[in-house]
Computed example of a mutant assay.
Amino acid sequence: MSALRTALALAWVVAVGVVAAVDSLEAAALTGGLLVFVGLLATQAARLADQRREGASLDRQITVGVALSVVQMMVAAALFAAVMFFSTHDAILIVLVTTFAGVLGLLTARMTTRRLVSDVRAVRDGLVAVGAGERDTHITADGSAELVELADAANTMTDQLAAAEGARRSLVAAISHDLRTPLTSMRLVVDALDDEILESNERGQYLGRLRLHIDAMHGLIEDLFELSRLEARETTWSLQHVDLGMLVGDTVEAMQPHATARPVRIVSEIPDGLALVRANPEKLQRVLFNLLQNAIRHSPPQGTVTVSAQQATEHVEIEVADEGAGIPEDDRATIFEAFVQAGDRAARGEGAGLGLAIARAIVQAHEGRIWLAEADLGTRLRFSVPLAHG
Rank of each mutant, 00 (worst) to 15 (best):
A145F: 15
E146L: 09
V148C: 09
V148Q: 15
E149I: 14
A151Q: 06
D152M: 13
D152P: 13
D152T: 15
A154T: 05
A154S: 10
N155G: 10
T156I: 10
M157L: 12
M157F: 15
T158H: 05
T158A: 11
T158G: 07
Q160C: 15
A162E: 12
A162M: 02
A163C: 07
A163K: 08
A163S: 07
A164K: 04
A167G: 08
A167S: 06
A167M: 04
R168W: 14
R168S: 09
R169A: 00
R169S: 02
S170R: 03
S170E: 03
L171H: 15
L171E: 15
V172K: 01
V172T: 01
A173G: 05
I175G: 02
I175T: 09
I175W: 02
S176V: 05
H177G: 00
D178S: 11
L179M: 03
L179Q: 09
L179Y: 06
R180W: 03
R180M: 03
R180E: 08
T181E: 13
T181M: 06
T181D: 12
L183R: 08
T184C: 01
T184Y: 06
T184L: 08
S185P: 04
L188D: 12
L188R: 13
L188A: 14
L188G: 11
L188I: 14
V189S: 01
V189E: 00
V189W: 00
D191Q: 13
A192K: 10
A192S: 13
D195H: 12
D195V: 07
E196Y: 11
E196A: 10
E199P: 06
S200Q: 09
S200W: 04
S200D: 09
N201H: 11
N201D: 11
E202R: 06
Q205H: 00
Q205M: 00
Q205K: 00
Y206F: 00
Y206D: 00
L207V: 05
G208L: 02
G208Y: 01
R209T: 05
L210A: 00
L210Y: 03
L210E: 01
L210D: 02
R211V: 09
R211K: 13
R211H: 11
